[in-house]
Amino acid sequence: MSNYFVSAGIELQEGADLKEAENGLRLLVEQTQSEPGCILFEIRQNLKQPQKFTLWECWTNRQALQDHFEMPHTKAYLARNLTEVNYIEELGEIGSNARPDTA
């Protein structure tokens, strides 16, 4: 079984406060990193466009990521409507045609 890798582009929602979003994302990272099944959860801010962020995630499997969205801290962050997802990429090893674990 291989790990489940995801990359996502997120952006500040129109009218949201950048500092509030930065603080919220920092807290989300801190809380998510201790979740069961989380191998990597990292958010980086674009240096030229600070309202844009890139999220890198690695989970033991897809179910671990799905469970992440049921965590109280994740629901609390999402309810604040500070950022929106522009894209999500499911990633694998170079040259691998294997599909991510669906369990």
Rank of each mutant, 00 (worst) to 15 (best):
L55E: 10
N23G: 09
W56A: 03
G92M: 10
P50I: 07
F69H: 09
E30N: 11
W59N: 00
G92N: 15
T83V: 15
R62L: 13
L55I: 15
L25M: 07
Y77R: 00
A21K: 04
K52I: 00
N61R: 07
P50E: 06
C38T: 15
E93C: 02
N97I: 14
N61K: 11
N86S: 11
V29F: 14
L27G: 03
H73G: 05
T54E: 14
R99K: 12
R80K: 10
K52V: 00
L25H: 01
A21P: 04
L91W: 13
W59R: 00
A21W: 03
K75Y: 02
N23K: 08
Q51R: 09
G15K: 02
R62T: 05
E93F: 12
L65C: 08
Q33M: 15
R80D: 01
E20G: 00
Q13I: 00
T83M: 01
S34V: 14
E70M: 12
V85P: 09
M71H: 09
T60C: 11
L28R: 08
E70C: 12
L27P: 04
L18G: 05
M71C: 09
L40N: 12
P72Q: 05
G92K: 12
K52F: 01
N86V: 12
Y87E: 06
H73W: 03
L47F: 11
D67N: 15
Q45G: 09
E57H: 09
L18S: 10
S96Q: 05
L55H: 09
I94F: 05
E42L: 14
R26L: 13
G92Y: 10
P72E: 03
R26T: 10
L78E: 05
A98Y: 07
G95I: 02
A16P: 04
I43L: 12
